[in-house]
Simulated scan of single mutants.
Amino acid sequence: MSQQNYRGMDFEHYTEGFMDSLVCDDNQSNLKIISETLKDLKCNVVVSPDLENAFDRIRYNQFDVLVLNETFGGGDPEKNELLETYQTMPINNRRRIFLALIGTNFKTLDNMTAYIKSVNVVININDLPNLKVILTKAISENDQFYKVFKGVLTELGKT
Results as ranks from 00 to 15, higher is better:
G17I: 02
E52K: 03
Q62M: 08
D40I: 01
F63K: 06
N69T: 02
D20F: 07
V45T: 13
R59G: 09
D56R: 05
C43A: 08
V46S: 09
N30M: 04
E52S: 05
K39H: 05
V23T: 12
L31R: 11
M9I: 12
L41W: 00
V67L: 09
R7W: 00
Q62I: 10
E52P: 03
Y60I: 15
S21A: 15
F63A: 12
N61P: 05
T15A: 12
N69S: 13
L22R: 05
D26E: 11
Y6A: 01
M9Y: 00
M9F: 01
T71Y: 06
T37Q: 01
N61Y: 14
E16K: 12
N27W: 02
D10V: 02
P49E: 07
I34T: 14
K39A: 10
Y6R: 00
K39F: 06
D64I: 02
F63M: 13
F55A: 08
L66F: 14
T15K: 09
L41G: 11
L68Y: 08
N61I: 02
D26W: 01
V23D: 12
A54I: 03
N61R: 12
N61T: 15
T71F: 04
K39V: 13
Q62D: 12
F55R: 00
E16Q: 14
E16P: 10
L38C: 06
R59T: 15
D10I: 00
V47Y: 11
S48N: 09
T71H: 12
S48W: 11
L68V: 03
P49N: 07
V23Q: 07
R7N: 00
K32H: 07
I34F: 11
E70A: 12
S35W: 06
D56S: 10
V67G: 10
D25V: 06
T15C: 07
G17V: 00
A54P: 12
P49G: 02
T71C: 07
F18N: 08
M19E: 04
M9G: 03
E12W: 02
V65H: 00
C24R: 08
